[in-house]
Design a protein around this nucleic acid. Structure first.
Lengths: 191, 191, 191, 191
DNA sequence: AATGAATGAGCCTTCATTCAT
DNA sequence: AATGAATGAAGGCTCATTCAT
């Protein structure tokens, strides 16, 4: 059956996201992706150069979506850092709640050797954006006087910890919890 | 060549730890492990039932070492929670600094489907130990009044975040940093 | 290269029959089967679940062909036993002459532990059919009054003995010889 | 532990006979033989050149024992053929009854490619002895006037058929049955 | 003479990729 | 554009054999 152009491509991307998130890159077989996508094994190679190109595409799509969600829509560039921190935390958590599979995928494929230059560039972009905000806030003496990367590690680590706990069903990411944890993490990083 | 008894086994375990930590379970080939260990491919199967049994053995060994380091030697069972928190944080961080490869391995193989019952039981043991301390501290109104699992996620996540940052060379785990971060994380979880 | 549908499967079956008959199950390597079939080693696994499933398929195919040859075409169910004995002997011998490889295969794989339930069921079917004829003939006092299984063993053993001798080139299965041996074996089992 | 010289060798031969008879040559692992013999894997290579030399030794031992049983003790060289036929049949059957494992081994390893020249020579010796008796009997017009090999095939096949049936529990080789079947097979081959 | 850990060739099988249809 | 049979390199594992003790 012939489908709407790019439908095939999207089905493959969705299936790949799901399986890679669940079993990792090396643990996922290309024929399995094709089957899950409901697509012939050969079709995959018309849309992607190979398995590596496919993970990278999925990776970039997830990262871009996350980036768009956190920073793009009405991001208050000049607002006080505390306000931006609030938006960042709540939107990031919102993304995690709405896209648990994408979040699991990103966690599992962070800094892996099969990620190509484009994917790494995208990772760097995000990290640089965060780092800039933090440095600027430290200059304004809003944040604790420790290396910026330490603060980033604390915040990002806490977020990942919560997301993982939610994936294992030990925590539920309600609005109240997101707000509460924001306060706690803020307490860890403020001056 | 014959070696001193159990040397072979240890060499295999060391090589497996290294490669699994670097490339993951499915990304590591058994012949590569053997070659890294400087051992014939078949020797692996005299000491372990297979690749899966091998990861599990490595996993358990790492977990046990971590457990021993954090809780075993002179653990002050009755001391105030803040004291125990200090020990836990500094020892755990010390383990991470001394065994970065083991730490990376544990991070990568957390809750994977090829872990067997024994490995899972060991994971549970550690989680339960931590959870007990936290619950007890909450009962004494030392810790914030949020679900215990949330506090655990914040602390564990922060620790992992720092370790990962140190692995990427963005942070150096000096004694001062360990002490400083302990204070910050404590600020996030205390009442 | 792509072939006409199911050609690959048939080529594999033919090669497997040949090699299994010559070297036995454990003595035959899957890559050898593939090479003999003029097919990639992986193709075997698209058509059969594995080496064991393959022997079983070959086994069943041989048994079914033998069964069809001996009993199916115009088998005179009500005729006197001597007539049926004649048909059975001559057709079975005919099968052996026309399919010496299949016959060797069946001889070698009789009652082996890697045969599955379906294959065993087929073996039983044939044995039961033979046993029924014999019992009925004994009831009519045509056959000697010894356990039916003894008569079956004498006839089947004689047949196998002749087939094996013909395989070793010590005997040639001419029509005259088939007729002659039928008389001799009949002399052994008649009342 | 050190054993009586040649005890080790005998234990290995016994274990090899048992396993080879059960699983065939290629289906039997050398370490299994050693374990069954209660002997170190290396010891096997002090007594036999390798796996092939071992099967051949077992083969020859079985054949020699059979030969001794049938022809050696008080064989009446000049007696009428019917008498010799009686002795041959009953002694051969006796051997099968007393050494079912050896019999199964011989059946399974008949004419296999890993048998060496010595083993083949031994097979030929027996066949030649039988053939000589038969030819001589045919010259005296005691036996049917068909190629000697046909008669041999009928007798040997019947014997194998009965032995196999007894192994599968469908027949019991009592003295009465041996006598009865001797008469029937004789009926098949006599003039 | 006996042992059994060590070895590596070779086995069965999987899977990323190709290509005729 | 889509398919899926075919491929063969590579993976996990076994086992006949060796050799230091």
């Amino acid at each position: 059956v012939t489908r709407r152009p790019s439908d095939t491509r999207d089905r493959i991307l969705a299936a790949a996201l799901e399986l890679f998130a669940e079993r990792g890159f090396h643990g996922t077989a290309v024929p399995d992706i094709a089957r899950t996508a409901g697509v012939g094994a050969g079709s995959l190679y018309r849309h992607f150069e190979g398995k590596e190109a496919l993970v990278n595409e999925v990776f970039r799509q997830c990262k871009r979506e996350l980036l768009a969600r956190v920073f793009a829509e009405g991001w208050p560039e000049g607002a006080p850092f505390r306000v931006r921190f609030h938006l960042m935390w709540s939107r990031w958590m919102g993304f995690a709640r709405d896209n648990p599979v994408a979040m699991a995928f990103l966690e599992l494929h962070h800094h892996q050797p099969y990620l190509d230059d484009d994917s790494r560039a995208l990772e760097d972009t995000i990290e640089r954006m965060v780092a800039e905000h933090v440095s600027e806030a430290q200059a304004s003496q809003v944040l604790a006087d420790v290396p910026a990367d330490v603060l980033v590690a604390l915040v990002h680590g806490s977020l990942i910890g919560l997301v993982r706990a939610s994936r294992h069903g030990r925590v539920t990411l309600t609005d109240a919890l997101v707000a509460e944890t924001e306060e706690r993490v803020w307490a860890a990083v403020r001056r």
